[in-house]
Design a protein around this nucleic acid. Structure first.
Ligand SMILES: [Mn+2]
Ligand SMILES: [Mn+2]
Ligand SMILES: [Mn+2]
Ligand SMILES: [Mn+2]
Lengths: 233, 233
DNA sequence: TTCCATGTTTAGCCTTAACTAATAATATTG
DNA sequence: CAATATTATTAGTTAAGGCTAAACATGGAA
């Protein structure tokens, strides 16, 4: 029996691959070798090697030169890791004074060391939160997760009022920059103008002193918003 | 540069070896290969291999066939791991409802994944505790630790009143048994009788209903007590 | 003082998970 | 449609950290 087939003995590498593959699969529809390599900062041949092992263990299906897809078992494992990660991030910010730009790194390590027992205790202490500090939905214990219904700030029409709901947790520099702009989760603003040719977007915060800020197009693409009035009750 | 010489990139194995060697050194005066192997549940040749690596990295000194001794760097590292372990145990019991029989296993994994930053935040949230849930002193941030001044229950004279101060954290079965006897940290009792030839010891709890319990000699040896009146201010 | 039990190390092997260099498959483009 | 660029895989190496079997030290008993 290979080491991978043990019940809860997956290595840090293994868990991070599964999590990354899940994320790529949901975002891009498929997980290609080079995308996995990029996300995990390893060389492509390392991915090929790990894909071989994961595939042999029944955690994913691999079509050579085409990409990989998680099996049911693989997906369930990925969801458990994702739940651990997001509960940890929420706990660290809510209970231990971490800010949203520093939790990811810590959770990235802890997610492989905590027991499910500890995660459930943390979840309980938090009142079973639905979202992590970056707005990402926390998978439930049984492995289901909501698909966040957000619109990129880059696609919010001029004149609309929107609320910031989801940001990426991966780049802490970026998160510090967002905070410095006043772009925290839940903040409400109006889109004042959008320059053409993927140009910058100007917003005005709803709350006094109603400051204006300019956001680059690429950054705006990565910010998930809900347009006021589009709310699903 | 070997992987071991990186600033904070010590592996789980490495940290557990250093911690174990520190504990054996303080308890037995020296750390022998077989003792390390026993404590870590690995084969003696695995210890020889790791000792080679640790010695090459300057974390310990090895005299072949004689044993190992931590260097200053090795000892400081061991103390940091021990601090992380004990803060974690305290946090889990104080803040997340863990009982003293289940924290050790969790801490044994987490101690290698948490950052010093997280540990200091936990310590802060706990009010910088001096002892872990088993009564073991928590090393300070600068790497000093108190030597617990306790007497084995097996050596407390009949008629004396004593307080339970220190138990081993390694055996959770044993910890559950102690709890079932009412033997928690801080509990006060009188030694009623001691059978000769390493025989059982009978104690009577000071608090009503003043139950009597019988404790085997070996178990009594592992219980650290302070005799009432011997207290150091 | 030689022999033997015990404990330790060496030799040789395995798995995981990374790497680089070379090769093979697929996609793009002239 | 052939040449080329991109992407993926294979081949071969390395290091950590485990294992078993065999060789080696050491200290006590015959
Ligand atoms: Mn994160
Ligand atoms: Mn991770
Ligand atoms: Mn412990
Ligand atoms: Mn450990």
């Amino acid at each position: 029996m290979s080491a991978l087939s043990r019940q809860r003995g997956l290595s840090r590498s293994t868990e991070d691959y599964l999590k990354t593959i899940y994320e790529l699969e949901t975002r891009d529809g498929a997980a290609q070798t080079s995308a996995i390599a990029d996300a995990l900062a390893v060389a492509p041949p390392s991915v090929s090697g790990m894909v071989k092992r994961l595939s042999d263990s029944g955690l994913l299906a691999h079509v050579p030169y085409r990409g990989v897809q998680l099996t049911q078992v693989g997906r369930r494992t990925a969801m458990r890791v994702l739940r651990r990660h997001r509960i940890l991030e929420k706990y660290l910010t809510a209970k231990l004074g971490y800010d949203w730009d520093s939790v990811h790194e810590e959770a990235e390590r802890l997610e492989h060391a905590v027991s499910d027992e500890l995660i459930e205790r943390m979840a309980m202490a938090l009142g079973n939160p639905e979202f992590d500090p970056h707005g990402a939905p926390i998978p439930t214990k049984d492995g289901t997760v909501a698909v966040p219904e957000v619109t990129s700030l880059s696609e919010v029409p001029v004149g609309e009022t929107a609320e910031l709901r989801l940001v990426s947790d991966k780049d802490s520099e970026l998160l510090r920059y967002l905070r410095s702009l006043g772009l925290r989760l839940g903040v409400v603003f109006e889109v004042v103008s959008r320059q053409p040719f993927r140009g910058p977007i100007t917003i005005r915060f709803a709350a006094p002193p109603q400051d204006e800020e300019v956001v680059g197009y690429e950054l705006a693409q990565s910010l998930g918003c809900v347009i006021r009035g589009d709310e699903v009750g």
